[in-house]
């Protein structure tokens, strides 16, 4: 099996400071990889480089595209890249406001990606939007409400539906359960796990929450000062951390 994403030598500097340095990994279809570290560790810089929201200073990101074959996301034309971003890739933001159109109804939010790839039949678009709302447990009668009328957890579920409606193969998630109540987090985690399994999604999840990463990710990268200091199977890294920083991170988790 070929990796769906192969990153090598990803480096991004902010002037003199290092965002992330020489990072490489392979991600295989169906795999969920977590990136953990404290704020400023470079995990968001790395995610944004991978997702095409930041341009790295060096490196390559080979994506095994269903439409275009293996291609380097960094050298694709903008048109190809944005086409991929609407179809095979998806990005779930920490703050749903960054990933939703707050002035457009829930149905319109879900339908946008469909219309973006050429869907022009209202009834079909609406039907798909309804089925996705159901999958993310948003009541059908909220389809014409705007996300501003939704709770935080519902907004996040809507963002997920909006992203997954075109059946992407790789999803980037930035603290997907970040601003949510603990009770809401659990439901969202379960939803994400189910979708990842059913759709065979690959995902890269950035989080500082070790409990989230343990439940969601198959393997993790631990970052500090822009470097990957430890990597491996999630439960192995968390239960038998080798690097001093990882040990500190694991030891610092509050027990509920």
């Amino acid at each position: 099996m070929n990796p769906i994403l192969r990153a090598t030598g990803i480096t991004r500097r902010y002037g003199e400071r290092i965002g992330c340095a020489d990072i490489g990994f392979d991600l295989y279809p169906g795999e969920v990889m977590g990136i953990v570290g404290e704020s400023g560790s470079g995990k968001s810089t790395l995610l944004n480089c991978l997702a095409g929201q930041l341009t790295p200073d060096a490196g390559s990101i080979l994506f095994d595209s269903a439409q275009q074959g293996v291609c380097d996301l960094l050298t694709l034309s903008e048109m190809q890249r944005r086409t991929l971003a609407r179809t095979e890739l998806a990005f779930v933001h920490q703050n749903p406001r960054d990933g939703l159109r707050m002035s457009v109804s829930a149905g319109g939010n879900v339908g946008e990606r469909l219309m973006g790839v050429g869907a022009r039949h209202y009834a079909n678009i609406r039907e798909q939007a309804l089925s996705w709302l159901e999958r993310v447990e948003i009541p059908a009668d909220r389809i014409d409400d705007r996300p501003s009328q939704f709770s935080g957890g519902m907004q996040q579920r809507l963002q997920i539906a909006r992203n997954l409606v075109t059946g992407p193969r790789l999803v980037f998630m930035d603290e997907p359960t970040g601003g949510l109540d603990v009770s809401v987090q659990a439901r969202l985690l379960d939803l994400l796990r189910g979708l990842v399994r059913q759709m065979g999604l690959s995902a890269i999840v950035v989080t500082h929450d070790l409990a989230v990463v343990r439940l969601l990710a198959d393997r993790i990268l631990v970052m500090k000062d822009g470097q990957v200091i430890e990597a491996g199977l999630t439960d192995q890294v968390l239960d038998d951390p080798h690097h001093a920083y990882t040990q500190l991170l694991v030891a610092s988790v509050l027990q509920a």
């Binding site: 109804s105 319109g108 219309m115 973006g116 790839v117 022009r120 209202y122 678009i125 014409d144």
Partner: peptide
Amino acid sequence: EYGLMHVKLYEDIA
């Protein structure tokens, strides 16, 4: 990228 234009029309119909 004109999908958004249809979002506006979708909103109208909805």
